[in-house]
């Protein structure tokens, strides 16, 4: 059977383009990272209210991505939310013990993420440690309620 080189080339390019497109969808659109962070370490943080935080949400420090939320569960000792953070291994032993974690919102209606702010304690956090100083998500209804009750008191 006669074989046409241009046709074979066309099909090859077509399939290659499809695979590259899938890679594009993975990296650029879903934000997967090729360099899987080989070494990460985890921190725990308890929040009174996480609002709309979801697993896989970003964890930032000074606006820079440093990790992601790997799990959220209810802590039945305190009945608050226990959030597990997976952080870049380079930060292990660098964050001071009094680092604070806050749940922030990107824009008014954007997605929620965890923001870390450094403290001043010379002692540092290691793998599996717990952040004690946390700030819950802002819940719009609670804010309004507070505002209204303040008005009534005045």
């Amino acid at each position: 059977m006669k074989r046409s080189k241009t046709m074979e080339l066309g099909v090859g390019l077509f399939m290659l383009a499809g695979i590259l497109g899938l890679v594009f969808l993975g990296l650029r659109v879903s934000g997967l990272s090729l360099s899987v962070p080989a070494d990460t370490f985890t921190l725990q943080a308890n929040f009174a209210n996480i609002g709309g935080l979801k697993p896989r949400a970003r964890v930032t420090m000074a606006g820079v991505n440093v990790g992601r939320v790997s799990a959220i569960e209810l802590d039945t000792d305190w009945y608050d939310a226990r959030v597990t953070l997976e952080l870049d291994g380079a930060l292990e032993g660098q964050l001071s013990r009094d680092t604070t974690a806050a749940i922030l919102t990107a824009g008014l209606l954007g997605e929620q993420y965890v923001g870390l702010s450094p403290g001043g304690d010379p002692e540092t956090l290691g793998d599996g440690d717990t952040l004690t100083d946390t700030q819950s998500a802002l819940v719009l209804e609670e804010l309004i309620q507070q505002f209204v009750s303040n008005m009534v008191r005045d």
Partner: peptide, 19 residues
């Protein structure tokens, strides 16, 4: 445009299910 997309699109749940 890109970062909002990356934050909300899940490779398995969205790209995978679409495929």
């Amino acid at each position: 445009y890109w970062s909002n997309m990356q934050a909300s699109v899940d490779f398995i749940a969205d790209v995978g299910n679409g495929m």
